[in-house]
Design a protein around this nucleic acid. Structure first.
Lengths: 112, 112
DNA sequence: ATCTATACCTCTTGCTTCAAGGTATAGCCT
DNA sequence: AGGCTATACCTTGAAGCAAGAGGTATAGAT
């Protein structure tokens, strides 16, 4: 059980969170569903992935949080900082680089 | 020093090795250069990645090896087994799934 | 009263990649 | 002879991360 280190997923949670939060502020539980939706159910991240990732990003200054009470529930809304936006851009570039390279290698492993 | 867990690289070495060896048998040192070439220098895997990966894949029965002496040097040539071919197909599908989902989420994080 | 959905959280388990370092031969230049 | 580079194999240690399982608590519906 507990499939550890699933292929191609390293860095993906962070990238998706930053991308979603670049649009509007959201809270953890909401992000769990948003990831499933925006990836067309192809990627599903559990709370055990989302929450630690959010905390880590906040600790590093990429996100800032704000508690809000809604319908007697407490939500923690996250939004991007300037540092977070730069981080998103950098990560997005990395993704582009690797995605392009791997796809090219798969299609044409004979020549560069 | 030692950039650990670089984003988006998990599973990539294995995928690239299987893909290259699906074309023709190759030896470790050759694969190091082949990866650089076929990815247009975008991805460069050191020997510390290649050799352990090859050993692991062989142990799991995805590869078989054959020693050859060439010009007084000993090379270990690897080639795919039937199990390795199935593994390549499965991994390639995984890559496709995640690559498509992430790209879609990056372009259009608002709607599925 | 029970169950489901919402909403937060932590801990442990396995990986995996990567850099650095280690061995040995062949060929070239000085 | 001596030194350097390229070839060719290899191992070890560090750092971190995704995932599942499990834990707490409130609101609303059956």
């Amino acid at each position: 059980m507990a499939q550890t280190n699933p292929p191609f997923m390293t860095g993906v949670p962070e990238l998706l969170l930053l991308r979603l939060l670049a649009q509007r502020e959201m809270y953890g539980y909401e992000l769990v569903r948003a990831v499933r939706l925006t990836t067309g159910e192809a990627i599903s991240l559990g709370e055990g992935v989302i929450y630690p990732a959010l905390h880590s990003l906040e600790r590093q200054g990429a996100l800032k949080s704000k508690r809000k009470a809604v319908d007697g529930r407490t939500r923690v809304y996250y939004s991007l900082t300037a540092l977070g936006r730069r981080r998103l851009e950098r990560l997005q570039g990395e993704w582009q680089r690797i995605q392009t390279a791997v796809t090219a290698a798969l299609e044409n492993p004979g020549r560069a």
